[in-house]
Amino acid sequence: MHIPDGYLSPTTVALSYAVMIPLWAYGFKKLKEKLDEKTLPLLGTLSALSFLIMMFNVPVPGGTSGHAIGTALIAIMFDPWIAFMAVSFVLLIQAVVFGDGGISTWAVNSFDMAFVAAFVGYYTFQFLKDKTKFAPFIAGWFSISVAALCDSIFLGIQPIFWHDAAGHPLYFPFGLSVTIPAMLLAHMGVFGIVEGAFTQIVYSFLQKRAEKAQQEVVA
């Protein structure tokens, strides 16, 4: 889902930054409201886990690979705005230091993997948490699947709007009929399962530890 530079038209890039800059500014305001020195170490660690889980590439049929993103875990442990900011930072590090995802596409990538994934993950979890113990799994799975759908739309609209007189695409060349099924199937079928399992396992570990600690205090 890390769209490289050159894949999206300058218009897409300009519009995406016009949307994301106010969202980042608002997110930064939220950070100031919600964070303190007690929450920062855990947030830093979960953000590092997001960076790391993205290094675990999993192959899928069709000759491509992908990975989980770890956004939903931060969103349900903290807050969707904080998760959005955390994963935006992770994506910036990946683009600048590792060349994974572009600079011009940082806004779009942050919209998909940070903003959409965080809010879908958070609200899915809130809706399901009293109904099933698998709420973290489903939140993780749904969160990355919707993020992948958004990514496939940004890619797939490129050849519709931006081509030369002969009809040759100028940027990403494959249309929605290719990108949507490819991205959705791989994420719903494979990477989403990894995302769900990661979210469920780490969330359960963290909650169990917290409950144990509380019981010890009470006893």
């Binding site: 889902m1 890390h2 769209i3 894949y7 170490p41 855990l42 660690t45 979960l46 590092a48 886990l49 790391l52 889980i53 290094m55 675990f56 590439n57 999993v58 192959p59 899928v60 069709g62 000759g63 491509t64 690979s65 992908g66 990975h67 990514d151 496939s152 890619l155 990403f172 990108t179 490819a182 991205m183 791989a186 780490v202 570990f205 963290l206 530890r209």
Partner: peptide
């Protein structure tokens, strides 16, 4: 924090698993 850091260390140690495929990502 202890649990989160344990997960972090395990994931760093296991990270070469991510190299097992050299297939590129879609798009």
């Amino acid at each position: 924090m202890k649990v989160a850091l344990t997960v972090l260390v395990i994931m760093i140690l296991a990270v070469p698993v991510g190299l097992l495929t050299d297939a590129p990502a879609f798009g």
